[in-house]
Amino acid sequence: MLRKTLTAILIAAILLPFLFFGMLSVGQAWFYPSILPQRFTLSNWQELLVGQSELQVSLLLSLLLGMGVAILSTLAGFVISKEIARAKYKNRWLLLAYWPFVLSPVVLAILVQRFFLLTGMSGEVIGVLLGQLILAFPFAVIFFQSFWTQEVLQLEQQSQTLGASAVYTLQKVLLPLAKPLLLICFFQTFLISWFEYGLTQFIGLGKIKTLTILVFKYVNEANIFHAALASLLLMLPPALLLWLNKKFVFRGI
């Protein structure tokens, strides 16, 4: 009974924001002391699906940045983490990977701002992508340290002495072993990009409007219906990824 109640509370806690923002996203004219908005309309959703609306562009941009950051940081993190695991001064390199997290993203943004200004990447998508990688890449490097154990490195050597090439070893040994971690890292780095605000705002100069930036903008404008729709969109991919994680990734562990 207690377990069922707790499960119900947990499900309600997850679903309630979706229901609340879902209701707000189709609302119009909500004035105190009404409990619900005066009218309900799909115009906000139509705006998203039809034409080149700000929300639509922002959603696509966020997806593009998220996928780019996730793919690049996961792949680079996997490779570099291995090199660090094999390096003579492993801890020194790892200390470097912790550097962005020790500084905090905003302080880091201030430090790297000049570089982005000089290279003309401020206010550009590529600049924001690189900026987000400053956080996501070290995260992936640290994340994969738990994979590159002495045993895995020895398995790689074993495969080599059995006659396998580096590519064969990667395909048949390393990638199958790392698959659950690769997927988790992909999801995590996607979410780092998806929810990133400080660096994106600073390097993007307000021109690169990701969904997270847009939510803050709508909230500042007191545009609650658009803010609700943007928030709903912001919550959907992480929820989907969490569901996929549960269904496919953790099942294999």
Partner: peptide, 20 residues
Amino acid sequence: VPPREREMVYLFQEPLLFPH
């Protein structure tokens, strides 16, 4: 000659089998 072409198989103290 690289390890994969030497045909000299190294057997570790612990039996390192591919777990998957």
